[in-house]
Design a protein around this nucleic acid. Structure first.
Length: 274
DNA sequence: AAAGTGAGCAACCGCGGCTTA
DNA sequence: TTAAGCCGCGGTTGCTCACTT
C-alpha cells in the first residue's frame, strides 16, 4: 500500500513564499496556534500544503528566530554538538536558542561538511546512551543552565532516566536501590560510538563555554544547604518522582554526579557504554 | 558588460515514528 | 490489531546573488 501524499498537490502553490502568504500564515497561527498543520492552509486561506506551512513557520516566521551570522560561540557549539550527536540537526538546534535545524544543517553543510567526513551513525555501529532529565524547574537554577546545554531546553518535561550506572570510585552511591523512573516523556537518545566522547570532553569548559556557569558556581551548588536539597527532593516527590527523591536524598547529593550516573558516565575516562 | 561559476539558503521530498479510529 | 493520517526529521534540490573571467 502506497503512502498517501500529505495533501492534494492539485492547485497547490510551490516555491518561494510571498509576503502576503507570510502574513496570512502568521495571522492564522496567532488565532489558532501552532499544530494541526493539515488544517492550517484552509484556515489561513493559503494554497499551500500543511507541511509547507509548518516549514515556513518553523524556519522563518517564528518570532524567536535569530537572524544573522553565527557567532563564534554558536559555531563552536555546533561543532561540538555535531561531534557528539552527529547529523541530529533538530537535537543540535534545540540547544542553540533561536536557530533552526534547517539553518544549522545548511550552515554545517556550507562550512564544515566538505572538511569533515560524514559521521557514521548506522545502528550497527552505535550504542545508545539514554538521557532524560527531571523537570528543569525542579532543579537548582545553576543546574538548569547546565542541563539546558545537554538536555533540550525546548522540552522542559524531559527526565533524566538513570540507566544502571556502572559505578566506580568517582561517584559512590550510598543508599537506596536503583530508581525505576517512569518514562512518560520524550527521550533524548544520544548515540555515541564507543570511546568517542569522554566525560571531560563533554563537561569541561573545553567542550562547552558555560559562561556564567563557572567553577565557582559549581562550587556554590555543591555548598548548598541541606534545606535546598530537601526542597528539590520534595519537589520531585510532589511530582511523582518519589524514586528520584529517595534516591538522591539518600546519596551524597552531588548535582553533577547524578548527571554522570544518569548517563552511565562514571569518571573522566572514555565512556564505557553498556 | 555579459556569461559562467559557485556559495548560500529557502523550500521540497520521502521516509519513519507516533497517534487515532 | 491494524490501517490511515499526521508530524517531524534528514537529505536533496533549485533559485538567487555575488564574484570571477
Amino acid at each position: 500500500m502506497g503512502r498517501r501524499p500529505c495533501c492534494s498537490k492539485e492547485g497547490m502553490i510551490k516555491g518561494a513564499w510571498t509576503a502576503i502568504e507570510d502574513e496570512l500564515l502568521v495571522e492564522c497561527i496567532k488565532v489558532h496556534g501552532e499544530g494541526k498543520w493539515s488544517g492550517i492552509p484552509k484556515k489561513a486561506g493559503l494554497k499551500r500544503c500543511g507541511k509547507s506551512c509548518r516549514l515556513r513557520w518553523l524556519n522563518y516566521l517564528r518570532p524567536d528566530i535569530k537572524r544573522g551570522n553565527m557567532s563564534p560561540e554558536e559555531e563552536d557549539l555546533i561543532i561540538r554538538l555535531h561531534r557528539l550527536l552527529g547529523n541530529r540537526w533538530s537535537l543540535i538546534a534545540g540547544r542553540i536558542p533561536g536557530r533552526t535545524d534547517n539553518e544549522i544543517k545548511n550552515y554545517w553543510n556550507t562550512n564544515f561538511a566538505k572538511k569533515a567526513p560524514a559521521r557514521q551513525t548506522s545502528s550497527s555501529e552505535k550504542n545508545s546512551i539514554r538521557i532524560t532529565s527531571p523537570p528543569s524547574d525542579l532543579l537548582p537554577p545553576n543546574l538548569q543552565q547546565f542541563t539546558n546545554v545537554l538536555a533540550t531546553p525546548l522540552q522542559p518535561e524531559l527526565e533524566f532516566e538513570a540507566l544502571p550506572p556502572p559505578m566506580d570510585q568517582n561517584f559512590s552511591k550510598t543508599t537506596a536501590s536503583e530508581p525505576q523512573f517512569t518514562d512518560n516523556s520524550p527521550d533524548i537518545i544520544m548515540d555515541l560510538n564507543p570511546g568517542e566522547i569522554s566525560v571531560s570532553e563533554i563537561f569541561n569548559d573545553d567542550f562547552i563555554n558555560f559562561n556564567d556557569f563557572e567553577a565557582s558556581e559549581m562550587s556554590n551548588i555543591d555548598n548548598r544547604g541541606k534545606s535546598e536539597v530537601q526542597e528539590i527532593a520534595e519537589n520531585w516527590a510532589a511530582s511523582d518522582c518519589l524514586d528520584q527523591a529517595q534516591y538522591y536524598m539518600g546519596s551524597d547529593f552531588s548535582p553533577l554526579a547524578f548527571l554522570f550516573e544518569s548517563a552511565g558516565w562514571v569518571g573522566d575516562d572514555d565512556v564505557n557504554v553498556v
